Every structure is written in C-alpha cells, then in structure tokens.
Computed example of a mutant assay.
Amino acid sequence: METILKGQVALVTGGTKGIGKAIADKLSSKGAQVVVTARTAPEENLNEHYFIAADLTQPQSAAVIAKEILTKYGKIDIIVNNAGANLSPGGGFDALTDEHWYNDWQLNFLSVVRINKLLLPAMIKQNSGVIINISTGAAKLPIWEMTMSYSSAKAALNAYSKALANELGSKGIRVNVVSPGVVKTPLMMDFIENIANSSNITVDDAFKVVMDKVGVPLGRMAEPDEIASLVAFLVSAEARYITGTNYAVDGGALPTT
C-alpha cells in the first residue's frame, strides 16, 4: 500500500457508491483516513471509512458533517465535494418547476459552499489543505433537454471554485475542479433507464441517445476509478503547484480545450 496521504483526514461527500466510492477507496489506499457521507449507510463498508449520514439538499447537514469531523479528528486536510446529481426531469425550461431548480442548486452548488465555509477555518489555521469540487462537462456543454438546471448549478460551482482558489492560494490551500463526462455509475444507468422508459425505447437505444448527444471520441463511458485516479493525484504533494484549474475527464467529449 502506498502511504503518500498517511496521517491526512479526507472528506468525500456522496462517498458510498459510484465516483464517490471510487475516490474514497483510492484515498484510503494511499493512507488517508476517509470520512464519507450519504443519505443512508452502505450495506457493507469493506474499507472502514468513517460514515456520517447527511442529506445535502438540507442546509443543516453541512454543520452536522463539519462538527462531527472536527470533534473526532480535530482537523481536515482534504475535502472532495463529490455529492451531486441531476435531480430534475428532461424536457427543457417548461418542464422545470421552482422546486426542481431549488433542489438542483441546493445539492450541486450550495451544499459545497456550506461545507467549505464551515471546514475552511480549520485548513486556514493549519495553513494547508486541498479542496476538489466535482463538476461535470455539462457545465460547459449543457444539454437543454436533459441537464438545464443541473448544468447551471455546476457552472456556478466552476466559477466559485476559481474564485476560491484565488482567495486561498496565499493561505496554503489549493482548490481544483474535476469535470467527468459520461461515467458508468448506478446513477448514470438509472438516468439512461429513465430516458428509455419516458421515450418508450430500449435501454441500448437510450444509451446511444446519450452518447450521441455528448459525443465521446473514445466511444465508451469512463470507469469511476479513472476519475478517482486523477483526484488522488491532485490532492497529493505531487500536485502542490496546481490550483484554480478545471480538469475534464470526458474521453474527449468537450469540443474545445
């Protein structure tokens, strides 16, 4: 086992499945003590991550998470704000209610702002820390009939992350964004199945619709571990001069650099 993160405490929100679980497992394998959050506890916790139950669409959850981490460990070294999802239906602007917009922004943007605000004082006090905000390629290339409110919340996350990196650089804290494209997760497979059901087409046809919309030169979905590997590098000392950057992990889908 590599121990490049030994002694460090890392928070991974949404860390019990999909990309979040891959990130949590990867950081743990590098020696970090990993804290994960989700609405419900996983059925099994083979890697012994410390679990905190939290629904990040609820504003009070950030305070619960921050208090428990700082009480138990007395510090925080790494924050990976991974929790996020496209909570709204497809169909464009007319299909979206105020509640859809509110829920997407609570989970995908405001929860990140709240968690960072409550944990950053501990990082500033120790003059070190790394924040990775997980965004999406859809923030730069929104699909109007699928991701309108979700994309707008993640675009705000990108701008916020750059501003935060500029503010915190002199305090020894780095902030970067990782923007996955289409990743093979349970959430993505549910999304594709919902498209199939709502459009009365097969799952294979729905998958083709998504891939055609996104346009992936490598021709496949990413595996969660491929996202986790980049995150593990960015939180390590090997990336100590990297901050304020947004990394696309999308198989070449974004048509511009």
Rank of each mutant, 00 (worst) to 15 (best):
Ile65Pro: 09
Gly14Pro: 02
Lys17Pro: 09
Gln126Trp: 13
Ile143Pro: 06
Leu5Asp: 03
Gly20Met: 07
Thr256Arg: 12
Lys21Phe: 03
Leu164Thr: 05
Ala163Trp: 08
Val210Ile: 14
Ala153Val: 05
Asn133Arg: 04
Asp204Asn: 13
Trp144Leu: 15
Asn45Met: 05
Arg39Gln: 13
Leu187His: 01
Thr202Gln: 03
Ser229Tyr: 04
Leu46Lys: 11
Ile23Tyr: 01
Lys213Ile: 05
Leu46His: 06
Ser149Ile: 06
Thr245Val: 15
Asn166Lys: 15
Ser161Ile: 01
Ala62Ser: 07
Ser199Cys: 07
Lys162His: 12
Ala139Arg: 13
Lys162Gly: 02
Val177Ser: 07
Ile143Trp: 13
Ser199Glu: 11
Gly90Met: 10
Asp94Glu: 14
Trp105Gly: 05
Ser198Lys: 10
Val182Ile: 08
Pro180Thr: 00
Asn194Val: 09
Glu238Gly: 10
Gly20Thr: 02
Ala155Ile: 01
Gly181Thr: 03
Met188Lys: 02
Leu218Pro: 03
Leu234Lys: 10
Tyr73Leu: 08
Asn82Ile: 13
Ser151Leu: 07
Leu70Arg: 06
Ala10Trp: 09
Ser151Met: 11
Asn127Pro: 00
Lys154Asn: 10
Ala22Tyr: 01
Val112Ile: 15
Asn197His: 08
Ser236Cys: 13
Asn246Glu: 15
Asn197Leu: 15
Val235Ile: 13
Met123Ala: 09
Ile115Tyr: 11
Arg114Asp: 07
Ile134Ala: 10
Val182Arg: 04
Thr256Cys: 12
Gly18Leu: 04
Glu2Pro: 11
Asn47Ile: 09
Ala41Cys: 06
Thr71Asp: 15
Met189Trp: 04
Tyr241Val: 10
Gly219Gln: 09
Asn197Thr: 08
Ala95Phe: 06
Ala156Trp: 01
Gln33Ile: 15
Asn116Trp: 08
Lys21Thr: 02
Leu96Gln: 01
Lys26Phe: 06
Gly219Asp: 08
Glu43Phe: 01
Ala24Leu: 09
Ile52Leu: 02
Arg39Asn: 09
Ala95Pro: 05
Glu193Phe: 03
Leu11Val: 04
Asn45His: 03
Phe191Val: 00
Glu226Ile: 01
Thr37Pro: 09
Ile78Asn: 00
Gly252Phe: 11
